[in-house]
């Protein structure tokens, strides 16, 4: 039987006493773009951070229920291995300021002390930067610091850094909320390219963005997964009243 890439069943997460994610069950299939949307504080980012076990780094964080990568329980795997397999791109571009563009791309290898021949390393850098649509802009300045790039370029550098590890899934936590419209559209265009090789889960505040880029959309409200369906279906004929209210802007 074919497994979903990520599947959750009755998954819960807490921050101390705050029950942030409630009984979420979801199946995410391979090579799709999943948008996760909902009002602020609805638990969407917390859910995302549970998938690569970043949530547990916050003091007082706790989880319950089953979350799987293919057939494996994410919460019995080594978190380091989980994070190899599930990459993440953050809200604000966060390239390593002490590393060059080149070293930023292969940071996952270098910081882990994995020894890789130079030729192969060069190949990984070119391939990852090409996939992140950044190669042409930076190929002549690979040894400059990553922080010299513009915000949009930095974010694509962070995407290249995630791609370089060849993960199964890449999580995006509001990846364009700190960027200007031009950078945003270049990153949205990138999502279409990336889904050929990866499964993308994108948390976004922006409904238009969810509609533009995703195959399926999950709507979170007050910690619950209210609805999960094809994006087109969701935006034209939502099944749940709350989804409809959110989409039509009756609450935010």
């Amino acid at each position: 039987m074919e497994h979903s890439v990520i599947s959750a069943s009755n998954f819960n997460a807490w921050f101390g006493d705050n029950h942030a994610v409630k009984d979420v069950s979801i199946k995410i299939e391979k090579n799709q773009v999943i948008a996760v949307m909902g009002p602020s504080g609805c638990g969407k980012t917390t859910f995302l951070r549970c998938i690569n076990r970043m949530h547990e780094l916050v003091p007082g964080a706790r989880t319950e229920g089953m979350l799987k990568l293919y057939a494996d329980d994410i919460y019995t795997m080594n978190p380091i291995y989980v994070r190899y397999k599930i990459g993440m791109v953050f809200q604000r571009p966060n390239p390593f300021p002490n590393l060059s563009i080149y070293d930023n791309v292969v940071a996952g290898y270098k910081l882990n002390g994995l020894k890789i021949p130079k030729v192969e390393m060069d190949h990984i850098v070119e391939k990852s930067l090409t996939s992140a649509a950044l190669w042409n802009e930076v190929k002549d300045s690979l040894h400059k610091k990553g922080t010299f790039l513009s915000g949009g370029q930095q974010q694509r550098l962070c995407i290249a850094r995630a791609i370089a590890m060849e993960p199964e899934v890449i999580l995006f936590d509001e990846p364009t909320s700190a960027l200007d419209p031009i950078s945003t559209s270049s990153i949205e265009a990138l999502f279409h390219e990336l889904k050929a090789n990866y499964t993308l889960i994108i948390v976004t505040h922006n409904m238009q963005q969810a509609a533009r880029v995703s195959d399926k959309t999950a709507f979170f409200y007050l910690g619950e997964l209210v609805e999960f369906d094809n994006t087109r279906q969701m935006f034209t004929a939502p099944k749940d009243k709350r989804t409809q209210n959110y989409i039509t802007g009756r609450f935010s």
Partner: peptide
Amino acid sequence: EAALSLGV
């Protein structure tokens, strides 16, 4: 977070 998310 950037480093941790790379499995470091």
